[in-house]
């Protein structure tokens, strides 16, 4: 695909699919219904108050997780890295479980604590990796520290699940960890959008630096770039985007790992192009999966199931079809 073609695609696809997905749902709403609907009609209420915030947030969450994945894979020069690796997801999940159990179980406290614990997990991972420098490269130690901290937070979540009231708190914690957009309203969407937008915006701004950081510490320094400062900046932006995403949708795995890979196959490894293309594809992919989750049956299917069932085959097909080696 040439540069001009994918540039237009990445700008056209999200708004196009945004409109298309809005017309999918268990309740049939046609554009004509909407034109003739009053504010009291079911079509109007469902379209503007239920579907609009949900599709919008699904797109932002998909974009945020994908952008975080691109950044983390780029700076670590490791294709297996995703937002889960540095402990953000499990840290945020632990924060949410704490809020459900100890802080009155309301949406605001869940969002705040999941965000704070996501950040805390990365800070711990980063501090631990710094103390391990003598054992390997900074990238390797960061990933190893991230995996360890992620495991610790996962274990802490398991402890909370163990002590949670099985009829009250446990189903909520489990449902949170499975991920869902079912609870999105305009109110909690407005609470989360600033974090998502700032995280995505920072990653977009810093995308040029990822190319240089991905060359390695020595090369980056030779080019006059402060490797450590830029790395911290990018990790912070990726953490902000991921934690904001987890705080509204729960943990949705797989997206931050595969969307960057699929996009890399389409546009190549240049992060200046890869980042915006991943944002677009991630947004469409996530909102598409959520549309399936809310439309296929009378009941909601946990979004994580759809992202894995749709994403994994798509990923394998892309890997098989892609001719060029990009890692």
């Amino acid at each position: 695909m040439n540069k001009g073609a994918h540039s237009s695609f990445q700008y056209v696809l999200p708004p196009l699919f945004f409109i298309i997905f809005l017309f999918f749902g268990r309740y049939h709403i046609s554009p004509q219904d909407l034109i003739h609907a009053t504010q009291q009609d079911a079509a109007w209420i469902l379209f503007y108050k239920v579907r609009l915030p949900r599709v919008l947030i699904a797109m932002f969450v998909g974009a945020a997780l994908s952008a975080a994945g691109v950044a983390l894979q780029g700076i670590s020069r490791n294709p297996l890295v995703g937002p889960e690796i540095l402990g953000v997801s499990s840290g945020a999940g632990f924060g949410a479980a704490c809020a459900i159990l100890f802080l009155g179980n309301n949406m605001l406290s869940i969002q705040l604590t999941s965000f704070l614990f996501g950040l805390l997990a990365v800070m711990i991972s980063y501090s631990v990796s710094k103390s391990l420098r003598e054992y390997g490269s900074s990238t390797l130690t960061l990933i190893l520290a991230g995996i360890s901290i992620s495991a610790v937070f996962s274990a802490l979540i398991s402890i909370l699940k163990y002590v949670a009231d099985p009829y009250d708190d446990l189903p909520q914690i489990v449902y949170w960890l499975m991920g869902s957009f079912a609870a999105v309203t305009w109110h909690n969407a407005f609470n989360t959008l600033p974090g998502l937008i700032i995280g995505i915006f920072l990653l977009l701004l810093l995308r040029w630096r990822i190319n240089i950081l991905s060359l390695g510490q020595e090369e980056a320094r030779a080019l006059g770039i402060n490797y450590e400062r830029n790395r911290i900046l990018l990790i912070s932006a990726a953490t902000l985007a991921t934690a904001a995403a987890v705080s509204i949708s729960g943990i949705i795995s797989w997206v931050g790992l595969i969307v960057p890979h699929i996009t890399r196959k389409l546009v190549g490894p240049d992060h200046a192009l890869l980042m915006p293309a991943s944002l677009s594809l991630g947004a469409v992919f996530m909102a598409g999966c959520d549309t399936i989750a809310r439309t296929l049956y009378t009941f909601e299917i946990p979004i994580g199931i759809i992202t894995s069932l749709v994403g994994a085959p798509l990923f394998i097909i892309m890997l098989k079809k892609g001719g060029r080696r990009i890692w």
């Binding site: 268990r26 309740y27 809310r294 009378t298 009941f299």
Partner: peptide
Amino acid sequence: SETQPGGWNAINMDQIAV
């Protein structure tokens, strides 16, 4: 909701409107 799968099922407002 009697024909839904066993156990408790999460549903959304679209389905409630249907």
